[in-house]
Nucleic acid binder design. Structure first.
Lengths: 360, 360
DNA sequence: CTGAAAGCGCTTACAG
DNA sequence: CTGAAAGCGCTTACAG
């Protein structure tokens, strides 16, 4: 449509192809040296005479030359792409987003770039993402594995790909996870200490690793605190806040309702808060939620939460991945990042009848 | 440390280098064909005889061959890397995270991968990120530009890089933004219609594009509604919720405090909510915030917010970027995605004295 | 200190 | 329908 002068690079001595980037050859021609000398200057080798260095630098500036990273790593002996990938359940989820940021920050310190994808808990999408990343020869992948068959991972490992999982475990792989079971036990115990004996549990899909661990922790605490381990108090396989809201309403309108709730995930916590509001029970029924939620401290009562540290999880996973890429040949390492219990009101409500007024 | 048998690919006919991936040459040797035929099969060309196709496919499976994307695009005439990059202010911020997700989803539909970086509003980090992406020959960049000199962008455009900005404008570039000014005017008018004449404004750094537009919209509405356009009601250059909290307290303890607040950004909204709580004025002073905040509907009163649509912004920016990559040669296009006003309580509080009780 | 040749893994442009 | 040669932009391995 427009004539070609519109976008022709002003300094290009190359052919007039639009947007054609100058190469080492163009720089070498302009500087009157060999391409090898250009390569030496670009890579900061110290063996080039100052005169030539200056001429090459000038030519690079004049042409706006930028080395082609892919071409250089194709021939380089280390064979590294200096790129890693991260596959998370949902990049828009605050937990995943913070993990991602931790990974990117750690990678940047090493001049490594980061590709990313969301799996949405779909094993096929997850595998396809890893296949696409493999084609780009990424040096490693950080994976929040979906629930599903991961036998395909063997082939990647064999081909030399480094893999570290976050949030969940895969047998034989490095991982960085929260102390799910212990933290869930602490949360449940926190409620039991206030005198609660009937504590409800709301959980995500039971086959998700974190959901299972958190249920185990809940039961650990019930056992230790002589709470009632009643199947009627447990609601699992809840997806999203709407289902959690329904389940909470149903649970609290049974003949023997719990006096406290432990919710195993941030969306479930939000659903439970909604339900308690609807029932007018938010100052009567205690609540501790796994995962902190933005504004949780501003609710009335404030939300007592187990805050994970997703950015730290991301940073540690990236550090471990780089250790593997650098050749660490040790046994698989599972790192546990503890969650912190933040008492802010909702978890300190005593059982119904014990003390009707709750202080802000 | 471990002996080499531990990680040697079982089927590799290649040299015994650990993790060495098979190449077209290995596949060709095993299948008894030329590398060109392997290339044809891999790229799905229809001209290969069924017998050879089968032999090549079998060899690919046996060796676990995966094409090297970088090597293929090095020689390919279109010169596309099928990779784009996104530079946002903070990948962990919910707004940025949602934009990012929108971009990644749109890119995946085209088999394009996405690199990402956070600029943290630092122009040097932003430029360095783009330089690193250029070295990887990304086909384009989606940029949430920091405030600062962007003359360096010219060189990138000249070299054939496609660039689309989100959230903020750069002269001469495609952009996808919220209707900041109009939405801010709607929010302010919403308060004025309830009878508020003294409406406070809290804003981010005044030189940030969105902050400036939102202040203009606030003033537009004050003019139209005959509200008091009093400099004493405006607090700008606030960074983060803590500064907003301070400014709100200071503003509300002056001799002629506002009866309503309009906050120009999500963190500032959170700071204002905190301040209102501390002062016990959350049911007395009206509040409308730019950006929705998770759990905003569960506060008491619920938070009246201008909800942007960051995922849509990301999707549109990616679509526009791909149009440019495909050669669209039209004038720069600025797309405006409207924000929605969500009345949930805090913005419907009447001026002090008019009606002390607010319904939930 | 500098450069000509070969090669990284693949595709293009030809020839059969 | 199939393949040998050349080349993408760069680095390695040599030679001077």
């Amino acid at each position: 449509m427009s004539d070609r002068t519109a976008a022709t690079p002003p300094a290009s001595r190359n052919d007039a192809r639009r947007g054609a980037r100058p190469t080492v050859r163009d720089v070498a021609a302009l500087a009157g040296v060999s391409i090898k000398t250009v390569s030496r200057v670009v890579n900061g080798e110290k063996t080039v005479g100052q005169l030539l260095v200056d001429r090459v630098r000038a030519a690079i500036d004049e042409l706006g030359y930028r080395p082609d990273h892919a071409a250089s790593s194709l021939r380089r002996s280390d064979g590294r792409s200096h790129t890693i990938a991260v596959v998370l359940e949902d990049l828009a989820n605050p937990f995943s987003a913070a993990v991602h940021r931790g990974v990117v920050d750690t990678a940047r310190a090493r001049d490594v770039l980061v590709l990313s994808a969301s799996s949405d808990e779909d094993p096929a999408d997850e595998h396809n993402a890893v296949i696409a990343f493999t084609a780009r020869r990424v040096d490693g992948v950080i994976l929040m594995p979906s629930t599903g068959d991961h036998r395909w991972i063997r082939a990647e490992l064999t081909a030399g790909m480094a893999i570290v999982t976050v949030d969940r475990l895969i047998d034989g792989l490095d991982a960085v996870v929260t102390d799910n079971r212990a933290a869930a036990a602490r949360a449940t115990m926190h409620l039991a200490r206030r005198g609660h004996r009937r504590i409800g549990f709301l959980g995500d899909l039971h086959h998700i690793y974190t959901a299972g661990e958190r249920l185990l922790g809940y039961r650990d605490a019930l056992r230790d605190a002589a709470g009632e381990d009643d199947e009627a108090l447990v609601r699992q396989d809840l997806r999203g806040s709407a289902q959690a809201e329904e389940a909470t309403i149903e649970l609290l309108t049974t003949s023997e309702p719990p006096t406290a709730l432990f919710t195993g995930q941030n969306l479930l916590t939000i659903g439970a808060v909604r339900a308690l509001r609807k029932l007018g029970l938010h100052h009567e029924v205690a609540l501790v939620g796994f995962d902190d939620v933005e504004l949780g401290d501003l609710l009335a009562p404030g939300l007592t939460a187990l805050a994970q540290d997703p950015a730290e999880i991301g940073r540690r996973a990236a550090a471990q991945l780089f250790a593997r890429i650098d050749g660490a040949d040790t046994a698989p390492l599972v790192q546990v990042v503890p969650a912190r219990l933040l008492p802010r009101g909702s978890g300190e409500i005593p059982p119904r009848g014990a003390d009707p007024k709750v202080k802000r």
